[in-house]
Simulated scan of single mutants.
Amino acid sequence: MFTFATAGRLVVGAGAADGVAGLLASFGPGVLVVAGGSADVEALAGAGDVDVWRHRGEPTVEDVRAVVARARELRPDVVVGWGGGSVVDTAKAVAALALSDGDVLDHLEVVGRGLPLPAAALPVVAVPTTAGTGAEVTANAPVRVPERRVKASLRGPTLLPAVAVVDPVLTVGCPPAVTASSGADALTQCLEAFTTPQATPLTDPLAREGLRRAGRSLLRAHAHGDDLDARTDLSLAALMSGMALANARLGAVHGLAAALGGRLGAPHGEVCAAVLAATTAANVRALRRGDPDGEGLRRYAEAAAVLTGRPGARPEDGVAWLRDTVAALGVRGLAALGLEDGDVAHVARDALAASSTRGNPVVLTGDEMEDVLRTSL
């Protein structure tokens, strides 16, 4: 038995964002917009009583508290998240908490109380301006806790947006570095959602098609940011990755990214890209030892065939493709992102305990996780 849940409505295609103001009319006149620092939300000026809150970077506990306080003061009818994945996640967190009097730490996993989110939440219209996290269709919202050097998530069905508007035109202005890190995140999410044992007959086609589109267009969009066909592929890959991961699981790459993100404060997608090839290689080696004829290796071989375009590709060919692609994107290693060798054991321990790691296709040891981290320095 499996379930499948996603945003209440999807509006996808070039120019889709032009209709957001019209969509908002059905929710009521009060609109709180959580927008990225450079996001152009002028199109929403006539959507009603619009209040814009600018947000940059991955949200911290204090960031969420500040916007929640504003939402409780304004009492809007709808929250719009217009920006990158972190902006959309912030909007989702605010909408989930605005109708209660609780604090974000009451509901945050790992370092908070982990209580269920309130049953009542404001509707969210998610408008991503990057192609990466798929936050427009996921039921979680990561939050950084700097004083604890961790990143944890709010989770629950009320975090699913009412409407997701995916317009690849909005991503055309993304700088190459943002294109690389966000696109690598989408690629990683498709790969992990496809290779996890929790994959389903509904998530497999999404993850497979997302891999195909990201694989053929990530480098092209990085080199030619105005290539709308490539941008469309990445936007669809991100959307598909979010739908797949929200209904399957992720894996050790995201377990490591959770541990590293809280400690380093580096962009999530860049951290994923930095450990992607080494983690995949470790998974393939472990599967070859423990289950050489099993489903795990078969899925890695299928993913390799999709990425390389070679029907007979082996899992190791996929690892080589990932390594070459990350290098071509100019992704920094973990040392450049701030990881010191003395922190490796602590990060490996935290990654093994992360919820995403439980979706990995094979159990990695602490030594194997440390080796991944040192290989990725």
Rank of each mutant, 00 (worst) to 15 (best):
R285L: 07
P292G: 04
G102K: 11
L218S: 03
V165L: 10
V33S: 00
R70I: 07
T188K: 00
S26H: 02
Q189V: 09
V166W: 02
L117R: 01
S181R: 04
G8D: 13
V124Q: 06
A162C: 05
E316V: 10
L234K: 00
S235D: 14
D63S: 13
P157E: 14
A281H: 04
H224Y: 14
L187T: 01
P315V: 11
H346W: 09
L337M: 13
L97G: 00
M240F: 14
G30T: 04
G84F: 11
R299T: 02
A119K: 15
V31Q: 02
L159A: 02
V78P: 05
V67H: 02
R358M: 10
L122R: 01
A17D: 06
G261E: 12
T130P: 14
G262L: 04
V111Q: 12
S26Q: 14
E136C: 12
A354R: 01
V166F: 04
L260W: 01
V163W: 01
A120D: 15
L44C: 00
G318Q: 11
A39Y: 02
R288P: 00
S100G: 15
G359E: 10
P118K: 07
G296T: 05
E109L: 12
L307E: 06
P168R: 05
A273T: 05
E368H: 01
S376Q: 03
P201W: 14
D101P: 07
E192F: 04
V33P: 01
R149C: 07
A96G: 12
L191V: 12
T365G: 11
V362A: 06
G296K: 01
D18Y: 00
G28H: 03
G30H: 02
T3G: 13
T200K: 11
Y300D: 06
A221M: 15
E73P: 03
A98N: 13
G265T: 04
P146Q: 09
A244W: 05
V87E: 07
S153M: 10
V145R: 05
V178T: 12
L334G: 00
L264I: 06
P197W: 07
T203G: 10
D63E: 13
G114P: 11
R216G: 08
V253N: 01
F194R: 03
N247K: 08
H222M: 09
V125P: 08
